[in-house]
Amino acid sequence: MSAQPDEGRTASDAELLLEVEAVEAAYGEIHALRGIDLAVRRGQIVTLLGANGAGKTTTLKTISGLVRALSGRIRLAGRDITGLKAHEIARLGLVHVPEGRHILRGLTVEENLELGAFTVRDAATRRRRLREVYEQFPILGERRGQDGSLLSGGEQQMLAIGRALMQEPQILLLDEPSMGLAPKLVTETMGIIRRLNEGGTTILLVEQNARLALQLADYGYVLENGEIRLENSAEALRADRSIVEAYMGSG
């Protein structure tokens, strides 16, 4: 890691919840991650920025176990999770909401949500969480019997997040939650993320829209060609002209 930068406005000495150390990953010949180091403390929102193809999605997939790390270490709350299977990692409370939302087509909104709580044995707990999600996203309650893949983009994003909440995550990995949404819905999505964080969920957020992400986040990393090019508090990154020019065109 680079020299000790400013650690952001909150949680600077909270427990390290997620630690990624020198992680490399590849798709066949394509060396997508060339040694990633990053850390997320409990209670923080940390954002991962970078151009298309920089390796943001691959970083999240490697953390959640969908892509195997070739080398390096990943720890969740101090426990080494490198090499665990994706479903085992999910059961530890690290929940990844993938790029493109991945609503299960042909299944109703409610079935999608209930599958989110697949690992919860107790039916009463499942029902309680379902109620909480419907309270938080009333539109999902109204559409509970409808095919989840037929919802609008914004509703699907809520469903994807709601489904993740059914797992009661310690940490949420969000991959471009604002992708394809109208500006008003982007703002709403950002509001939801802030609320979740205020409710105690730690968040690692990948965003194309760097301006928005840095408004929410405590801390940010900038990825380039599978490497962390720089990292700093969100405040400092917002003030950095070169970042603004390189990654905020779309904001």
């Binding site: 969908l66 479903h87 999910a90 993938p98 991945h102 299944l107 599958l115 690992t119 489904r163």
Partner: peptide, 21 residues
């Protein structure tokens, strides 16, 4: 739950893994 999971697996395996299946 396993019956639903069976339908889900036939649709999207990686998403299933992320849900702990």
């Amino acid at each position: 739950q396993y019956g639903r999971a069976m339908r889900a697996v036939s649709i999207d395996k990686d998403m299933c893994r992320l849900m702990g299946i």
